[in-house]
């Protein structure tokens, strides 16, 4: 038998193309966050449009001692599917939160804080940090999301985004002060 050590280095490689299932992603997420560290990964799906797009890179921080607040985007295990999900807190009561994706038809239901693993603290899109939805405005966003109105407001947001982009100077520098360089390593 050929010894495996006949293989020469490098012995580690970046796992760029490694597909992770929801359960595997959740396992890694929980393992990292439970160490008190942040977790950075690429989001999939469209349930948080317009604030998180498919392919955005999200940074989660452990919840720590601070309870989830109204309007925060929280990673949790979905009560029905059991899959890791990131949606918004649209209502709170003792020990649990009502969760909803900004662009989905129905709420997820009440989720116990024990089933929440982290909060979104940064959204990076195409190398730019998106801050809209992470500040105090999240309370207003939550109120709109609670009533499922983002679906109807999306055309207005789309028009606004195009207007902002159209106002950029020739160098491509964003005029929108709610975005900043993500400092991506790639």
């Amino acid at each position: 038998m050929r010894p495996p050590t006949a293989e020469k280095g490098p012995y580690t490689s970046l796992g760029d193309e490694l597909p992770l299932s929801g359960a595997e992603l959740a396992d890694l997420m929980v393992a990292v966050l439970s160490r008190g560290r942040a977790f950075r990964f690429r989001a999939k799906g469209s349930s948080m449009l317009p604030f998180v797009c498919d392919g955005d890179v999200l940074t989660l921080q452990p919840l720590g001692d601070r309870q989830p607040r109204l309007g925060e985007m929280i990673a949790f295990m979905h009560p029905r599917s059991g899959r890791p999900t990131i949606h918004r807190v649209v209502r709170r009561r003792a020990g649990e939160c009502l969760m909803r994706g900004d662009s989905v038809h129905a709420v997820d239901g009440w989720v116990a804080e024990a089933n929440m693993v982290g909060r979104v603290t940064a959204v990076c899109r195409a190398g730019r940090q998106i801050r809209v939805g992470l500040g105090a405005e999240r309370v207003v966003i939550a109120a709109i999301s609670r009533w499922g109105l983002w679906r109807y407001l999306r055309p207005v947001l789309w028009w606004g985004e195009r207007t902002v982009r159209g106002g950029r100077p020739a160098g491509g520098q964003a005029t929108d002060d709610r975005s900043a360089d993500c400092g991506d390593k790639r």
Binding site: T12, L14, D16, F39, R40, K185
Partner: peptide
């Protein structure tokens, strides 16, 4: 940071 976007080996 546990960065599985850029640092997963």
């Amino acid at each position: 940071v546990g960065d599985i976007e850029d640092e997963l080996y």
